[in-house]
Write a protein that binds this DNA or RNA. Structure first.
Lengths: 188, 188
DNA sequence: ATCCAGAAACCGGACGGTTGGTATCTTTTA
DNA sequence: TAAAAGATACCAACCGTCCGGTTTCTGGAT
């Protein structure tokens, strides 16, 4: 070993891949998609550009991976929420609402922000979301097929978007809205 | 005049400015915000970079101008729609719905696409939209203040977003939804 | 148990191209 | 003729990508 020229790093490919994906999402919602450069992502993940390119053959592949990962997380979160819901009618829609407008603090800086940004900006990534929703909806047609629930879901998207846009007093405004939307999922 | 080196162009500053704004919006929804470069906008508008920089001192100024212009157009369109609506209750919300989900063909490739893209991608531009909505809403609090109308507007946003994402069969799916939303604006 | 290849993981500099921006010049308009 | 409108040339910085090199891991053969 040549003194001073060596470098050492534990090889944890999965962890690095995770770090890269997380860094990409974080950079996206902090500085916009324009801030997601190979160099920036690599730096934020504690890896060099070369290391990044070992995991993702191109930037497009990185963004694709990011979107797929975020959709997977959303999938899991919704599944978890659905598991704790005894009422069959509108389970998916309720989980959807609670996932997007969660807790007292809304998911502004959350994963979904990076997702919506990616698909809005990059035309190539647009169908991903719609496809995900349609597949998910096909699975829950029996419990979540009514027109009212469709409106509830779309309203959730709009409300989330409004909050993510950084509207002042959005938390206070959206809290009662969420309750109204949830109440609507039990109707009919 | 040196032979072959001369150039001639009618000087129409306002027309050029319009062309630049339009070109920026068109490039945005065609190739994403990443496709909106100074050079590309200038080329598309039939002007050189120098010409562009005469009208907009920076790229940020160009994007700000684009967003402001798009919001202005939206303002005008909604005003026009409201003028032809005899029913006071929910006028603004109806105009909002009709503007976003207009005609038989939805406004996918429309101005709003560039708008949502710009504000989603660039964190700096995010407050513009929310501010616009809040100001507009303050003007129509008397006629459009009810919670139901709020849900209708948010659902409109979500539905538009869904359509803009390029979902298959969105037109067929969203047409009845629009009618339902419009019907809701007359309730109560 | 140990060794030793070979593969996988990671480094980091170099490259050609593009970016936003500036400075200077020419043409048109008022 | 002064100022606006636009053209042209140029720059430093950054971009995504590539590639040769270095380190660590893995699993047979011994």
């Amino acid at each position: 070993m040549v003194a001073g020229s060596g470098y050492s790093r534990k090889k944890e490919p999965e962890a690095v891949r995770r770090a890269l994906l997380d860094a990409a999402a974080r950079l996206a919602l902090q500085h916009g998609l324009a801030g997601v450069s190979i160099q920036a992502v690599a730096d934020a993940a504690g890896v060099t550009k070369g290391g990044l390119f070992h995991h993702f053959p191109s930037k497009d592949a990185l963004l694709d991976g990011m979107v797929a990962d975020l959709l997977q997380r959303l999938d899991d979160e919704i599944d978890a929420l659905m598991a704790n819901d005894p009422q069959p009618h509108g389970v998916f829609t309720r989980a959807y609402v609670n996932s997007a407008l969660a807790g007292n603090e809304f998911a502004f800086g959350s994963d979904m922000a990076a997702l919506s940004m990616a698909m809005t900006t990059e035309p190539r990534l647009r169908p991903f979301w719609a496809t995900w929703l349609q597949q998910r909806l096909a699975r829950h047609r029996d419990t979540d097929g009514s027109p009212i629930l469709e409106i509830v879901r779309f309203a959730t998207d709009g409300a989330w978007f409004y909050g993510a846009a950084g509207a002042e007093g959005a938390s206070e405004q959206l809290a009662p809205l969420r309750e109204r939307l949830l109440a609507m999922t039990y109707e009919e």
